[in-house]
């Protein structure tokens, strides 16, 4: 028996919004410690790694480890049927063919129940090596989203350059160039602060298309963490409230 309950479906709705444009399907690994998802986009350019800890749920029970293949589009449709204040309960039997989503509206005697067929999926798990990154930048997630949106108008790629002076985002195309530079702020730990930990300067280019998928996670938290090293994938990390995190890995572009 698997059962996981959140008194506010808002967080799960935001999680689905953060992955639905990037992933068509994903395997949800459920264990006693929580729910883990690792999945690549169809083009195998990026990887999503998500963790929802069992102690972050209002009720969590997982008697046997389950590996459930789910259609992200269908799951997203189902979560759209919940209002943000609804309590959401996910439930599955051992060796399930389906997963059940139940929504209870507080103060009302209404329960909505949706059952989704699970998908048989090939188990493809990638090993992500432990990496010490040359630059780790924490900045307001809304600021990052705005930069990605703004610069995407000017080119297909965004070049991120990080030095002691700050982090610079650039795009260039036929119509012109765009540059946004952020310096480290005096105070750290605030929601609007910019902090840069740098061992070595980096300069890498990434596809705007994918960065625009990642910023769909912006409503999840106020700060985003970008980890960069030359010639390795970017890690773009958002906390999922107090319950877990979502990390997007994006392979860099290289000169032709």
């Amino acid at each position: 028996m698997f059962e996981a309950r959140l008194t506010q479906s808002a967080i799960l709705k935001k999680v689905l919004d953060a992955i639905k444009d990037l992933l068509t399907e994903a395997t949800f690994e459920c264990t006693d410690s929580g729910i883990q998802v690792q999945a690549m986009d169809n083009a195998h350019v990026s990887l999503v790694s998500m963790n929802l800890r069992s102690d972050g749920f209002d009720k969590y029970r997982c008697d046997r480890n389950l590996s459930m293949g789910m259609s992200i589009a269908v799951m997203s449709k189902i979560l759209k049927c919940a209002t943000t204040n609804d309590t959401v309960t996910m439930r599955a039997v051992d060796n399930p063919d389906t997963i059940e989503f139940m929504f209870d509206t507080p103060g009302k005697d209404v329960q909505a129940q949706y059952e989704m067929k699970l998908i048989n999926m090939d188990q493809e798990h990638l090993g992500i090596p432990e990496t010490v990154y040359s630059c780790v930048v924490k900045m307001p997630s809304q600021e990052f989203a705005r930069i990605v949106r703004d610069l995407s108008q000017f080119g297909e790629n965004i070049t991120i350059a990080c030095t002691k002076e700050g982090i610079k985002f650039s795009a260039a195309g036929d119509t012109g160039t765009a540059n946004v530079k952020l310096a480290q702020t005096a105070d750290s730990g605030e929601s609007d602060s910019v902090t840069i930990e740098m061992q070595e300067s980096v300069k890498l280019s990434f596809s705007c298309r994918y960065l625009n998928f990642f910023i769909k996670a912006t409503p999840l938290c106020e700060q985003v963490q970008l980890s960069l090293s030359n010639d390795v994938p970017l890690v773009c990390e958002f906390n999922i409230g107090e319950i877990g995190h979502i990390k997007y890995y994006l392979a860099p572009k290289i000169e032709d």
């Binding site: 690549m40 195998h44 350019v45 990026s46 990887l47 493809e124 798990h125 990638l126 090993g127 992500i128 090596p129 790629n157 280019s205 596809s207 390795v232 994938p233 890995y249 994006l250 392979a251 860099p252 572009k253 290289i254 000169e255 032709d256």
Partner: peptide, 13 residues
């Protein structure tokens, strides 16, 4: 510029 694949960095296990 050419796009690298994520699987060229992370191997299947």
């Amino acid at each position: 510029m050419a796009q690298r694949s994520i699987t060229s960095f992370f191997k299947k296990i």
